[in-house]
């Protein structure tokens, strides 16, 4: 498929396409169909080559490198700006995190202080309460001991009174005082 120069030598297939043109050309002077007027082909190809060559040169050497440079510069600029924005955002985020950390620390510290104070106060109150309780318990024990002593004393008195009364009653009834052993036995029996 290597043609010597397709620009001036149309491939074999093209000839069949151009057949109507050739036919038209046979009567060219009586107004042939202008696009198939072969007498202008060489001239048109030459001007096409010159114009398109010039265009290609301009595009290749000037226009496209410049547009590419513009687009590249813009992309760079956008990237740089985005990077900067990203960096700033990171900075702001870091500041936010630092603030939150500080806040959390402060809150923790405050909570600790409050807790310590509360604990201290509670311990103090507890100690006071215990001291008071001990004191009261002691007082209570003393009072109970006193009551018990008094009760025992009273109970002792009751026994002697009951003995005396019993012996007096027995003496009156029988005319004879019971001996103390019998009296004690009787008292014990009634006491329990």
């Amino acid at each position: 498929m290597a043609q010597p120069n397709p620009l001036t030598t149309p491939p074999p297939g093209a000839d069949t396409q151009l057949v109507p043109g050739h036919v038209e050309h046979a009567e060219a002077h009586s107004g042939a169909f202008p696009p198939f007027e072969t007498s202008g082909f060489l001239s048109q190809l030459i001007w096409l080559a010159l114009a398109f060559g010039l265009l290609y040169y301009l595009m290749d050497k000037v226009a496209l490198p410049r547009i590419q440079a513009i687009l590249h510069a813009r992309a760079e600029r956008l990237r740089a700006d985005l990077d900067q924005a990203q960096a700033m955002k990171a900075e702001a985020d870091a500041a936010g995190i630092a603030y939150e950390t500080a806040l959390r620390d402060a809150q923790g510290k405050a909570r600790d202080i409050a807790q310590t104070t509360r604990n201290e106060l509670a311990a103090e109150a507890d100690a006071k309460r215990k001291a008071l309780e001990t004191e009261l318990n002691a007082k209570l024990a003393t009072a109970e001991a006193t009551i018990r002593a008094r009760t025992e004393a009273a109970m002792g008195n009751v026994r002697s009174i009951a003995g005396e009364a019993a012996s007096a009653i027995v003496e009156r009834l029988t005319g004879q005082a019971p001996d103390s052993a019998t009296l004690d036995r009787a008292l014990d029996a009634t006491a329990h």
Partner: peptide, 22 residues
């Protein structure tokens, strides 16, 4: 030979197109 060489309006339009593109 048979070919007529001329600067035609077609050529003018082609260069005008190159000018507009430029």
């Amino acid at each position: 030979g048979h070919q007529q060489l001329a600067f035609t309006q077609s050529a003018l339009y082609m260069f005008a197109a190159v000018g507009v593109i430029a």
